[in-house]
């Protein structure tokens, strides 16, 4: 059930990146896809344990810490990509006053 929902979230993002023409929404789609991947790792990694991976005296049987550590990196990288893409989109908007990617290509190549 959870995986199916995450898959749908991923598809929403992918659809936006491929088919929506507005650059900002493409970048939204990228963020959503990334959230879906992070959710996938965390949801599956939480299956094997029942407490947070912080060891104290009474804690045992923790969830898998590896996906969590990897996803920390993935989240930060995704935000960096978003920021750079936004900078590029803003510059393009400043010059051509549009966010539509096909229109931008036409204006640039003419």
């Amino acid at each position: 059930m959870n995986e199916l929902l995450i898959y749908l979230i991923f598809l929403t993002g992918l659809f936006a990146v491929v088919f929506i023409k507005n650059i900002i929404k493409k970048i939204f789609g990228l963020g959503i896809m990334n959230s879906a991947v992070v959710l996938l790792f965390i949801v599956r990694g939480a299956e094997i344990g029942e407490s947070a991976p912080i060891l104290e005296n009474t804690v045992y049987n923790v969830v898998d810490p590896i996906p969590q550590a990897l996803m920390l990196t993935a989240i930060v990288i995704s935000v960096c990509i978003t920021a750079l893409a936004l900078g590029l989109a803003y510059n393009l908007y400043l010059t051509y006053r549009t966010f539509d990617i096909d229109e931008l290509r036409d204006k640039i190549e003419s």
């Binding site: 750079l84 893409a85 590029l88 989109a89 393009l92």
Partner: peptide
Amino acid sequence: PHAWLASLSYLLISATAMLLYLIGMYFLYN
């Protein structure tokens, strides 16, 4: 502006591809 658009297209497609990489990696780790 050419370079901005080129960079943006490269960024979008390769970021999407890197997410597919992560999914592939997820399965292999699983």
